[in-house]
Design a binder for these strands. Structure first.
Lengths: 150, 150
DNA sequence: GGTGAAAAGTTTCGGCG
DNA sequence: CGCCGAAACTTTTCACC
């Protein structure tokens, strides 16, 4: 059962402004407040809306260094439980399983180069992997909301 | 002027739940509702809180294919205006300038392999770059909120 | 899906430490 | 100067059509 027109509009609006009120969502969609409310709750229950987050400036909270870390198991036959083995490391913001040369791509946020070095050692030890790190210099844009699909 | 203890706590709480009410933030921080309100508005004005977003399940909105695209200018002396040249492509969720072999890493969301092919052609044409694409197979976790810094 | 009214949340503001 | 508390206003929630 696919998400149809009006639900997709609600999702898109909330992706762009996670704190938009039901009143404003109702105006934008032409529905009543309670109908919008009902749909949002249903979308949350179905998992289409997975949650809400403030977008924050990591420089300002003492985590100015962002990096992508690609990882590859040392033992090619190793069980692929790297995500669980690494999940306790709170510097890791996301973990994607990927096709290609490496197995996973992690996005991490740390305070300093030294903290990155420390994190890399922890990752290698915890998951028995080799790592390839790409340091982010700047972020022209991030978290752009999806375009409304036709 | 760094963000201190109590502000960092507010930011962390909102990063984990972008719709948390001022009342709940007040309870968590031990401040009054109006004091929390004041601090949140100040953090927004300063840009520490950059906005709010719903976290969405892209499978459900018809964009089930995620990929990372690393790009490199064809002409090494080219002006580095790739981000602006690409910003009209709404499939691109984020753009990071990076150190290393390539110049930028893009994260994209598309409907299908065919849509990805089309996007790659548009990227190459718009920014005069070569591309290297890593397809995401699954995402064990994403958008984990930052740990409260000491 | 809509209505309406009670409950809850947000915003503003005068005054206090 | 930032914090508090209360009043004014807005949004959310819920029972019922």
């Amino acid at each position: 059962m696919p998400v149809e027109e009006i639900d997709r509009r609600i999702v898109t609006l909330l992706a762009a402004d996670g704190r938009m009120s039901f009143t404003d969502l109702a105006k934008e969609t032409g529905l009543s407040v309670s109908a919008v409310h009902q749909r949002v709750r249903r979308l949350e229950k179905r998992g289409v809306l997975r949650g809400y987050a403030a977008l924050i400036d990591y420089d300002e909270i003492g985590l100015p260094l962002t990096a992508f870390i690609s990882i590859k198991p040392i033992d090619p036959a190793a069980a692929d439980d790297a995500p669980e083995r690494l999940s306790h490391l709170t510097a890791i913001e996301s973990c994607h399983s990927v096709a290609g040369e490496e197995s996973y791509i992690l996005k991490v946020r740390v305070a300093s180069p030294l903290a990155l070095e420390d994190l890399l050692n922890q990752i290698r030890a915890a998951a028995n992997v080799s790592t390839r790190t790409t340091v982010v210099l700047s972020t022209p844009y991030d978290h752009r909301p999806p375009a409304i699909a036709p």
